[in-house]
Design a protein around this nucleic acid. Structure first.
Lengths: 348, 348
DNA sequence: TTGTACGCGTTATCAA
DNA sequence: TTGATAACGCGTACAA
């Protein structure tokens, strides 16, 4: 419809032009517009009037070069296919735009090489900070950034209360399963467990261990089922069936990520399992789909939006900005709905 | 470790440093590293070797100032809560990173003022282009951008085959309903129809009209139901019940956006309607949840990812980049699944 | 209170 | 094939 390509030579309004039009020097214009330094009320008024009459826009590229600091935050997303990253991006962007910061974003596509190159691009852009929205493919690449420049690096896992809260929520979830007479849990993820890595290299691994701990405390067994992305539908269903096993097998499922949930649900449906009659189902992450699904899905809510807001606020404060106080971020929580039921063979 | 060492930002490797270490001038370094201009193979090798031994990263801020052009694309998202924008962002980012472009993103939050300020920020950042990922709150704000600089402005509606393809998909969907003996369709959206606006101001409005046209051609009636966000659950259910009316009312529902779908589905479920036994259900946009839902939902697939790729490729070519050819973007299409059934009272 | 002059890191011009 | 030098637009000591 509207495809406007204006190739005309752009006449950007210069600070010099503003200075001449206002009958002052560029230094005065700079002082007035950057709110720092002295200027008489008269000239101040005249300069601002002239500036926005001419439609002057300060060139943040030149400013960045001169001041050696930028007002750009970078987000490195390990995998943009993950829908929860949208909430995270929103949170960062909202706080950033409140302070006049720009937000640049890059998708690492779960590829260490891409990840490395995007970090290098951020560095070359001189961004004020890099926010890593999850576990990196190669965490050592961050040291390059930290060494090479004055960038700050934050990871969402560094958000206070995030992982701790998640542990509590997981315990609540497992307790609920225990209350429904489940004696074992099946954790479904895309990638196989890496028992020896310390610290855990992925968020999924963190959750897996937290789940194992919580289960152990309640005397429950925690089984694993790995469903790699490359697995075909039939193969995946077969593997899931194996994991559920015979009459003694686990009848409580916890999905490692929200992305995985619809696929597992579809499999269970085609295999003829009834939720919550025969299988109890839980997943990490919440959405309106989880609420709309029948039965409504019990979830471990994460609230990545508030998490991102909190994290970005801390970051901007560290960068010397002043922000109004804000209520504490909502912690992760177990949200019981209708997808958890009594284990059938253990029912009274 | 002394305080000074911690506080002081690490020194960036300069082009000057590289020049000195390689025994040449900065001009030569520039020529070698920017791939333009002559240099003897010997010095070329020496310079590149020294450059990455010292870990030199070109400062794109300074480069941007000098060359007066940036390698940053901007995406203005009307409302980042809309999940389909994630696919769009991914598409832009993937093509951009292929050409070494950065992607900066802003959420207009459906607020004309925020929208205006974010555009101004883009302009001040001297981005190479602004991509508007949907209908703007105030389209006239774009003229400011176009006038103020050499930015290109593209709207996703400008993607070839997008809206046209959508019309065809809508016709296919309505035909399917007609085949199932439906004589009227209920279009559910968040905002009320604006019959007089020309051209239509929102994507929803475009779809509404396309649906009206397709229905008219097949001799069907197109009803409207508006469910504003601020409506409470009970009020929304009441309004939906009214729209469905008595025995003669519409029994085919089309959701204007994917975001709306889970909410409407939840309402229908609590109201006791059976899909597809009593109600046929369609929605714009596809996802794994639509497939996992029982019954699996028939959808009008949009493929915003391919659309964004295509659009960004065109943009970068216009900016003077060379890109390898790529298969044509997948067009929107009607994907029939299990949520459309015969109209009960008209069944043979 | 305001103006002058310099430098941020890079590329483009021109002379050697 | 290379090097010296002038900008790009802005912020900021320092002088007036």
């Amino acid at each position: 419809m509207s495809d406007e390509a204006v190739q005309r030579p752009p006449k950007r309004v210069d600070m010099k032009e503003v200075a001449e039009a206002a009958g002052v020097s560029t230094a005065t214009v700079s002082r007035v517009l950057s709110q720092s330094g002295y200027a008489s009320p008269a000239t101040r008024a005249r300069v601002t009037e002239v500036a926005d009459r001419l439609g002057y826009q300060p060139d943040s590229v030149a400013r960045g070069l001169r001041t050696r600091r930028s007002t750009t935050l970078a987000i490195l997303v390990p995998d943009l296919r993950n829908p929860v990253t949208l909430a995270f991006i929103r949170g960062v962007q909202h706080v950033a735009q409140q302070c006049g910061y720009a937000v640049v974003i890059a998708d690492a596509q779960r590829d260490a090489e891409v990840e490395r190159r995007q970090l290098a691009l951020f560095q070359s852009q001189r961004v004020a900070a890099v926010i890593v929205a999850g576990m990196m493919q190669d965490p050592s690449a961050l040291s390059t950034i930290a060494r090479g420049n004055s960038l700050l690096v934050h990871s969402p896992d560094a958000a206070p209360g995030s992982l701790e809260g998640e542990r509590e929520a997981i315990t609540d979830a497992v307790s609920d399963l225990s209350r429904h007479r489940h004696r074992s849990v099946l954790f479904i993820s895309r990638r196989a467990p890496s028992a020896n890595a310390e610290p855990p290299a992925t968020l999924t691994e963190v959750r897996r261990r937290a789940l194992a701990d919580a289960s152990a405390e309640l005397g429950m067994r925690a089984d694993q089922c790995t469903l790699p992305t490359e697995l075909s539908g039939a193969a995946a269903s077969g593997r899931l069936a194996d994991a559920l096993g015979g009459p003694g097998g686990p009848r409580a499922i916890i999905c490692a990520s929200h992305r995985l949930a619809p696929q597992v649900l579809a499999m269970l449906a085609t295999m003829g399992w009834d939720i919550p009659g025969q299988i109890s189902f839980l997943t990490f992450g919440d959405s309106e789909w989880a609420t709309a699904y029948r039965p409504a899905l019990s979830v471990i809510r994460l609230n990545r939006y508030q998490e991102a807001r909190h994290l970005t606020r801390e970051l901007l404060v560290q960068l010397g900005n002043v922000l109004p106080l804000e209520e504490a971020a909502a912690l992760p929580a177990y949200v019981p709905r209708d997808s958890v039921g009594d284990r059938p063979d253990e029912a009274a």
